[in-house]
């Protein structure tokens, strides 16, 4: 009986301490981005590491390997190579998962220093962030089950097209194929699962991402070529021209040294 009473009395302060510790550590995490207007390049140099926002669900560009827990792909290798150029060591990177929907916000928050996540340079986005030079040329295309009667952008009337929330492809497809129904999902893994479960006739996004899906499941193929140009750039928070310059220099160095070609041919077979 006595023990029970003692436990009762101890429980509340204990709970309070755990709460404070728990919530406190949460807040520390939350403020990791630092103050709003800090110069990102200075922060990178001070921390001696670059935090990149990358995809975790996009085969060939950024895919988390469930066996190792590592993220692998073209964007990842480019990010590592950039870190090597800028900080001298490719291990001086940290990767945080972003989706098409969350990446802008994470960058604005200061959670990540730069986005290397299959992100197309658009005028609309240039108002919100600064982009580096193009580091990959993609174009929007369609992925269908082999033998589908969808053969290209002109055969989508009355069909259902799947896309991902927050992506340019979701916006483009409504302009290019106004007679198609468009369904949008949280991430590419869900969108591809939905295509495989016959939730739509085609999945649309950049060909580079679609190649990854076709590579994963040979029952699917790209049709109709590309119908937009999707130049990928690395995005940084607005007003960080020095970081953009630094990244552009590094990109140029990678292209000059042939390392870019190596990474490109390692991941992109087509």
């Amino acid at each position: 009986m006595k023990l029970k009473k003692w436990m009762k009395m101890a429980a509340l302060p204990l709970a309070a301490v755990i709460m404070l510790a728990g919530c406190g550590s949460g807040n520390d995490d939350g403020n990791a981005g630092g103050s709003k207007d800090a110069n990102v390049l200075e922060k990178i140099e001070k921390d001696d590491k670059i935090v990149f926002g990358v995809k975790n669900d996009t085969r060939l560009f950024g895919l988390k390997n469930p066996s190792t827990g590592d993220v692998e792909g073209f964007d990842i290798d480019i990010a590592k190579a950039l870190a090597k150029e800028i900080l001298g060591d490719e291990s001086k990177v940290e990767f945080k998962e972003v989706t098409s929907k969350t990446r802008m916000q994470l960058l604005q928050n200061g959670d990540i220093d730069a986005i290397v996540a299959t992100m197309t340079i658009t005028d609309e986005r240039k108002k919100e962030v600064d982009f580096t030079d193009v580091y990959f040329d993609a174009g929007q295309s369609l992925l269908v089950k082999k033998g589908s009667d969808v053969t290209g952008i002109d055969s989508l009337d009355g069909k259902t097209v799947l896309a991902v929330k927050g992506s340019t492809s979701a916006i483009n497809i409504r302009e290019k194929a106004p007679e198609a129904d468009v369904l949008e999902y949280e991430n590419y893994a869900e969108a591809f699962t939905a295509l495989k479960q016959n939730k739509g006739d085609a999945l649309t996004t950049d060909d580079s991402i679609l190649y990854g899906m076709a590579d994963e499941d040979p029952n699917y193929e790209l049709v109709g070529g590309t119908f937009t140009e999707e130049p990928y750039g690395i995005a940084v928070k607005k007003g960080n021209e020095d970081l953009v310059d630094k990244l552009n220099e590094a990109l140029k160095a990678l292209k000059d040294s042939g390392e870019y070609e190596e990474i490109h041919s390692k991941w992109i077979k087509q």
């Binding site: 975790n56 669900d57 469930p66 972003v98 991430n187 893994a189 591809f192 699962t193 479960q197």
Partner: peptide
């Protein structure tokens, strides 16, 4: 994108139907 249980599941079933 919190890597909790359902998210881990989505990544695995996203690989193979």
């Amino acid at each position: 994108s919190v890597p909790e249980l359902l998210h881990s599941g989505q990544i695995i079933y996203g690989q193979k139907q």
